[in-house]
Design a protein around this nucleic acid. Sequence first.
DNA 1: CAAACATAATGAACAGTGTTCAAATTATCA
DNA 2: TGATAATTTGAACACTGTTCATTATGTTTG
Lengths: 205, 205
Amino acid sequence: MGIADRKAKEKEELKALILGSAKKLFAEKGIEETTIRSIAKEIDYSVGTVYVYYKDKTEILHDLHQQGFTQLGSEMRALFYVSDPMERLKALGRIYMKFALENTQMYDLMFNMKAPMEFIKANEENHWKEGNDTFGALRKTVKECIDHGYFKGHQLEPLSFVIWGSVHGMCSLYIRERVKAATGQEPDELMNSAYEDLMLMLSRK
Amino acid sequence: MGIADRKAKEKEELKALILGSAKKLFAEKGIEETTIRSIAKEIDYSVGTVYVYYKDKTEILHDLHQQGFTQLGSEMRALFYVSDPMERLKALGRIYMKFALENTQMYDLMFNMKAPMEFIKANEENHWKEGNDTFGALRKTVKECIDHGYFKGHQLEPLSFVIWGSVHGMCSLYIRERVKAATGQEPDELMNSAYEDLMLMLSRK
DNA sequence: CAAACATAATGAACAGTGTTCAAATTATCA
DNA sequence: TGATAATTTGAACACTGTTCATTATGTTTG
């Protein structure tokens, strides 16, 4: 079945082309400028073609958010070699924050926008695998910290969520342009010093 | 000048009526359903009239976000009687979180949506008074905590931002429906236990 | 090779959005 | 009452996501 195979490959390639176009526009111009028409125009196809390969915009955004998690996941996995759990926790947070600040649109899509969650709900997958895996990696590291004598009196699940929420909160305020407006400080500097303050707080035995 | 006065009052009243309509739709149906047409329909005026009193939608959303800060501000001010700064800090956070969970759309508008910031930028007010005041109240309380021996080794500005970011982060993850999806826990329960874990961490001398 | 069929791509059309502005309506004044 | 000013209107514009009959292309078959 050579022809069928080739056709299947071509379909996949075109789908990837559409997603690539979406990714480019999304990263460069943000969600506002990433319209179906602009995606189609970028690759010289008609709007209708996009809908042959993606049933709607939320599916495109879901696929995109998945790519973001793939990247973040591989960056996080590169830290598994760090044996000391507290050191690893600190490094994890740094990587996470770095990813957020360097890929603001993508981070926004992954953790703030409604589209990916709506797609998951609409397809009743009922399971946010990407989020689950990422939070699982954090929880595992926090667990090891607890086993090493850190976080006395804390519970694993709430504590892990607090840590996630802390870094996510700072990143979101940064991305949604509340940092300078509210504090008057230089955002990038404040993000760094705040992260150090957070780590200081976490690493107290 | 009786007539001019009355006209001015009527103008103000109609503007308030538009804002009230927007507020109602916004709280009940969210931003998606709060269209200019729906706002106009709610109060039996035409779309054009809305644009006589508001130059665009961001101005409406900015006025709305201002109302949210007025409410949050008064709820926070009710805690000034708490003399112990750490107790006050804990209470502040609770009130803040309660406000976020009970007014999800409004909180989202105040701290996540782009509209209010875009309005401020477009009118080069260059000063987010609402955010400044709120963060100022937090900073002041944190300062007092430091003066009472808490947060040794921490700096006021970054620390205050970390605390804000922590609570904001958890609230945002809740509102944007990432909590249950990522942790598998019951969101409301986790929010509470996480807040207690956070406070436990903060109140260690 | 041509005709029949299957697959893929198209873009006009639809319903919705925010926004504008000439025209119609209403209120005020002389 | 008639002229003038203020207010309200809603059709129209440019955009969005989405659909689907039509067209074009590729494949198989007699």
